[in-house]
Design a protein around this nucleic acid. Structure first.
Length: 638
DNA sequence: GTAGGGTTAG
């Protein structure tokens, strides 16, 4: 009897057709109790009643009884959904306690279970012992390695699979695409996909769009998207996310409109991508509009985090703080976003206080949290706090400081004028210093006018990043300051030879949900004449209260020979003038720019805020300046 | 029957 019940499920396919699948009870009435044991087990499995199913399984085991593979797979699903690892192991042992090797499909289910429980080594051991592996077995392993970002391993498995004569299907491709660590890889796989006609599968399509976007090939992503005949909302989300990721906020927003016109409703991932696009463009008005859509998902953590970031990046701290306080659930990302947001907007003390609340709340800070903390310390010149948080990273939280943390500390020491200590810290670093490490030291040298260290630091940056236009200009300015004209000429020659071009200063402002861009001295704006008139008027008014253009900053521009004239038309000044004339009184003027603000524009903005009784927020690539009543939130320290 | 897609902080 025992033997028959075992054979019922473990029989090799070739033999099983010779045996009847008639219930055991009907063959032998005296074994009725065994049959009911099996029935109980089956029922509990399908009812997802894990404790009773396990008890029934124990009882069966003592009689050597086994159920069919589908029932076991139900039980495994139940263990998975309850994250019951110990029970899952009991099930595995029971399944393997028979005389035959279980069916491939059942082992695949077990494999998947190990992977989901992050027991990859055990999964790998089981995979190695499998007498036969089908496309599912291979795909489970490949997608497990993809998820762990062990890309090489995933691609290696793909090759082993092909050598084994198993053909990849759409499941395999949609997983393995993520493992591509070069565009060449993506294209090779794409060829294979087209060859076997799997390019029409929507999963494969969204994976292709995603990976092309990751490698910056938006055009390829768009062609994959355009080939789609039937709509699919995840593919829409992929392409919107692709544009958002590649900093093409306009493209993302246009697609979002098209998606809505095509009759697809925006869900959380869509809205998160759209928010990311608004964040990148600092579109507060549009972002606030998206907030209305988000209300439907007001408990969604990821979406709230994206919204929080949008408010921080748009420099609207009041909205950010009120959202943060309302959030029912907060994770390390919410806290880190809020801390970094406060720090970047000049509220360093508040950022550090929030960090204390975070610790009290029981959320563990991570690598990124500390970047915000150290940024807060460095931008407020809090030397002691900086050191103590920096040391606590390893001592208290077991996080090894990375280059970026060292960069913050070097920034902090450098700004405090401790250039020697900063240099020593670079020498002490365990990781190789890179351009990001040297650049803050270079900035500090400029502030403290230490030409020797500056020259050294600039050369280090250019060794590591020969394309860094800002550093060439800084170096040439340092030489110019010391009247070393031959060296100035040499730097400019190197720049020309290497084809390095200075990015022109550009500022953006949102008026009536339209973005207006201004470039240094640009007169292409339809209202250029009025803007110039407004700007001149403003400068006249500011001179009355003591504004003197600070031409020493002109030295930062290679093209700055015309001195006062060139800074007069810096892009942020044009944007401020335009904001004053087109926004209603009392509305905050929000400007985003691609380069860091110069000292003259900083004074200009402070005085404008005072004279015109308005608030101006300028976001540069690193931080934010809130100008109000003649002062700036950065405390003139940036 | 078992395996696959889109979203958040530097």
């Amino acid at each position: 009897m025992k033997a028959i019940s075992k054979l019922k499920w473990m029989m090799p396919p070739s033999l099983s057709r010779h045996f009847s699948h008639t219930p055991i009870a009907s063959r032998n009435v005296s074994n009725y109790s065994l049959s009911s044991l099996l029935d109980d087990f089956t029922r509990f499995c399908y009812q997802r009643d894990l404790p009773r199913a396990i008890r029934a399984m124990d009882a069966m085991q003592s009689h050597g009884l086994h159920a069919d593979a589908v029932t076991y797979s139900e039980l495994i699903k139940c263990c998975l959904s309850r994250r019951a690892v110990a029970e899952a192991k009991l099930v595995r042992n029971h399944i393997f306690s028979g005389g035959y090797y279980p069916k491939t499909f059942l082992v695949n289910t077990l494999l998947n279970m190990y992977v989901k429980f992050d027991l990859l080594e055990e999964a790998q051991a089981m995979f190695d012992q499998m007498p036969e592996r089908n496309v599912v077995s291979w795909t489970v392993m490949i997608s497990a390695y993809c998820k762990l970002k062990l890309n090489n391993k995933a691609l290696e498995f793909m090759i082993l699979m092909l050598r084994d004569g198993v053909r990849p299907n759409m499941f395999t491709y949609s997983s393995v695409l993520r493992a591509c660590d070069s565009l060449v890889n993506v294209r090779q796989l794409h060829c294979g996909i087209i060859k076997v006609g799997l390019d029409s599968d929507v999963f494969v399509r969204s994976a292709l769009i995603d990976i092309y976007a990751k490698w910056g090939e938006l055009r390829c992503a768009v062609s994959v998207f355009n080939e789609m005949v039937t709509g699919d909302f995840v593919v829409w989300n992929s392409i919107i996310g692709a544009f958002a990721q590649n900093n093409d906020g306009d493209g993302a927003l246009n697609l979002f409109k098209r998606m809505k016109r095509a009759g697809f409703e925006a869900n959380q991932p869509t809205l998160t991508s759209v928010l990311r696009a608004c964040t990148g463009l600092a579109l507060l008005e549009l972002g606030t509009q998206v907030h209305v859509h988000v209300l439907k998902y007001d408990r969604d953590l990821i979406l709230n985090n994206a919204l929080l970031d949008m408010y921080c990046k748009c420099g609207s701290l009041e909205d950010a703080k009120s959202l943060f306080n309302r959030m029912v659930e907060r994770d390390v990302i919410s806290w880190s976003t809020m801390i970094a947001g406060l720090a970047q907007n000049g509220y360093s003390r508040e950022a550090l206080e929030l960090f204390e609340s975070m610790k009290l709340s029981g959320t563990k800070p991570n690598y990124i949290t500390f970047l915000g903390i150290l940024f807060a310390c460095s931008h407020a010149g809090l030397l002691e706090d900086g050191w103590s948080h920096f040391r606590s990273m390893r001592n208290v939280y077991g996080i090894d400081p990375g280059r970026e943390h060292y960069g913050c500390m070097i920034d902090l020491l450098g700004r405090a004028g401790k250039l020697g200590e900063a240099l020593r810290l670079i020498e002490e670093m365990e990781c190789e210093p890179d351009a990001i490490t040297w650049r803050p030291l270079l900035d500090a040298c400029r502030i403290h006018r230490n030409m020797d260290v500056a020259e050294y630091a600039a050369k280090q940056v250019l060794n590591l990043d020969p394309e860094d236009a800002g550093t060439y200009i800084l170096l040439s300015n340092i030489y110019a300051n010391s009247q070393r004209w031959e060296d100035v000429a040499e730097v400019r020659k190197t720049m020309r030879e290497r084809g390095v071009r200075k990015e022109p200063g550009c500022s953006w402002i949102e008026v009536n949900k339209q973005i207006h861009a201004f470039i240094l001295g640009d007169s292409s704006h339809p209202q250029a004449v009025q803007i110039n008139r407004q700007l001149n008027l403003l400068i006249y008014k500011l001179r009355e209260v003591g504004y003197v253009p600070d031409t020493s900053f002109v030295l930062r521009d290679l093209e700055g020979e015309q001195k006062e004239d060139s800074i007069r038309y810096h892009s942020e000044k044009l944007a401020i003038a335009f904001g004053l004339m087109s926004l209603s009184r009392g509305k905050t003027i929000r400007i985003r720019k691609n380069l860091r603000i110069c000292g003259d524009c900083h004074i200009f903005a402070k005085l404008t805020a005072k004279v015109e009784h308005c608030t101006i927020v300028i976001r540069d690539p690193i931080r934010y300046h809130h100008f109000q009543d003649g002062i700036c939130s950065c405390g003139d320290y940036w």
